[in-house]
């Protein structure tokens, strides 16, 4: 059974804004029945202010697809279209207190439906450039298509390369056999064979100073969100792939501390393009276990 958060379950059992919306003037359809999930997002937009007055959904899909759709409609109601376009799939997942890695695509579908609905309102055509394959790395929710494309685009040849570029395989390492198989296939296309002993191509290295600045910058971006909940976060130190932070105010000792740290770690990994571990320091260092749990 999936480890769904209470919030996911709540939105699945009692979905908000379900069913057709009369007077909708922006409709986004994504997914298909063959893929096992399909979502129609219907927006009623005030033409003068471009504000979303109402949002409804219809979804064919699993529990988390329905919960993500429900969450999406709640998030965007009252937003202007431009504000709504700023909503990321991570925002949808965060709103639901997280989704299992296998289910992150449900939140991606929500974001795509939003883009499609806005495009529909504005009379534009929206086309999706993202193709999804079988999930390979369950720790970081990386699928086969992304791994293949990245190997091709960057001429990668080792598992370590793949981890450096996509994060896939950087957690529990159980998917290394799968990554090796993809490498063998793609390498065969360019007439090479996979050599498990080959050295990784050095990752496009960021200088030490640039890296620390990037970390500071990313944490600065996260702070307003935490401050809104009367919390805060401070960067304490960086040691290799460990980033030590201190959670303050309402965040400190909050039950959601582990979830927050997991989110911070995810944002840092994305910003740096490498695997890092966020370690809390101070009175609540026990939450470290929680942070690790998000990676495996």
């Amino acid at each position: 059974m999936w480890d769904y958060s209470e919030k996911v379950k709540e939105h699945f059992y009692n979905p908000r804004n379900a069913g057709p919306l009369d007077g909708a003037n922006g409709i986004g359809d994504v997914g298909s029945i063959s893929c096992g999930d399909a979502l129609r997002l219907m927006l009623k937009v005030d033409p003068d202010s471009e504000r979303i007055l109402d949002a409804h959904f219809q979804t064919f899909g699993c529990g988390s697809a329905i919960a993500s759709s429900s969450a999406l409609t709640e998030i965007v109601k009252g937003m202007t279209l431009d504000e709504a376009l700023g909503v990321s799939n991570q925002d949808i997942a965060d709103y639901l207190d997280g989704l299992p890695p296998e289910k992150m695509h449900c939140s991606v579908m929500g974001r795509e439906a939003l883009q499609a609905a806005v495009a529909n309102y504005r009379g534009e055509t929206w086309s999706d450039d993202h193709e999804e394959g079988a999930l390979v790395c369950k720790c970081f929710a990386i699928d086969a298509v992304l791994i293949e494309d990245t190997i091709r685009a960057n001429q990668l040849s080792t598992v370590e390369d793949v981890t450096n570029y996509t994060k896939a395989g950087g957690g529990c390492a159980a998917c290394h056999e799968g990554i090796e198989e993809i490498l063998a296939r793609v390498l065969a296309e360019r007439g090479e064979s996979f050599d498990p002993t080959a050295k990784a191509t050095p990752a496009p290295a960021m200088g030490n100073l640039a890296r620390i600045r990037k970390i500071e910058q990313t944490i600065e971006q996260i702070r307003p969100t935490l401050q809104r909940d009367r919390g805060d976060i401070e960067l304490i130190d960086v040691d290799g792939n460990k980033i030590f932070v201190s959670l303050k105010g309402a965040c400190s000792g909050c039950q959601m501390e582990a979830v927050t740290l997991g989110g911070v770690q995810q944002k840092l990994i994305e910003a740096l393009g490498e695997f890092v571990k966020v370690v809390p320091v101070g009175a609540h260092a026990h939450a470290r276990d929680g942070a690790c749990a998000t990676e495996a």
């Binding site: 059992y13 096992g36 064919f60 699993c62 697809a65 329905i66 296998e102 394959g133 079988a134």
Partner: peptide, 28 residues
């Protein structure tokens, strides 16, 4: 309709069954 959603609602009513849907296995 999709199998996992059915199973979750059945489970809420105390009934355990299983499904061949993609979502229950995490595959597509």
């Amino acid at each position: 309709i999709e199998g996992e959603a059915i199973l979750l609602l059945l489970n809420k009513d105390g009934i355990a069954a299983s499904s061949g849907s993609a979502c229950t296995s995490g595959s597509l």
